[in-house]
Design a protein around this nucleic acid. Structure first.
Length: 103
DNA sequence: CCATTGACTCGGA
DNA sequence: GTCCGAGCCAATG
């Protein structure tokens, strides 16, 4: 486990229910604003073995990044269950639900 | 070391 | 608004 990865995981684990964060935002807090893609990779790796609220992580457009075919629906339901309103295209109001505070 | 991989992001057409 | 190309970064084989 590298420091960067650990940081990312910690951040994700700390996202409160009903809130979401963008990949870029997480990468920034972890120390590398441009490493959004790395965050994605970590999510894949970690979500397999660890329980992470990966469904609270979305892209900068404020939408669920998954394709309709993937576990898109699952993530969508998880979010709505936590109080996050998800639009027809997985659209989420970042102004409303983006989590800015750390820890 | 080099090449590949990712649920990304940004800017321009 | 949408689509596309280029940039970006760290982990992996």
């Amino acid at each position: 486990m590298t420091p960067f990865t650990e940081k990312v995981v910690e951040i994700i684990k700390q996202i409160p229910p009903g809130k979401v964060m963008t990949y870029g935002q997480i990468a920034g807090l972890a120390g590398s604003p441009r490493a959004a893609r790395q965050v994605v990779r970590i999510l894949h790796s970690m979500s397999r073995k660890h329980k992470l609220p990966w469904h609270r992580v979305i892209n900068a457009k404020g939408q669920i990044a998954l394709q309709e075919e993937d576990p898109f629906e699952e993530q969508r339901l998880n979010l709505e269950m936590e109080g996050v309103e998800v639009g027809i295209h997985g659209k989420i109001n970042l102004e409303e639900y983006r989590w800015d505070l750390e820890e």
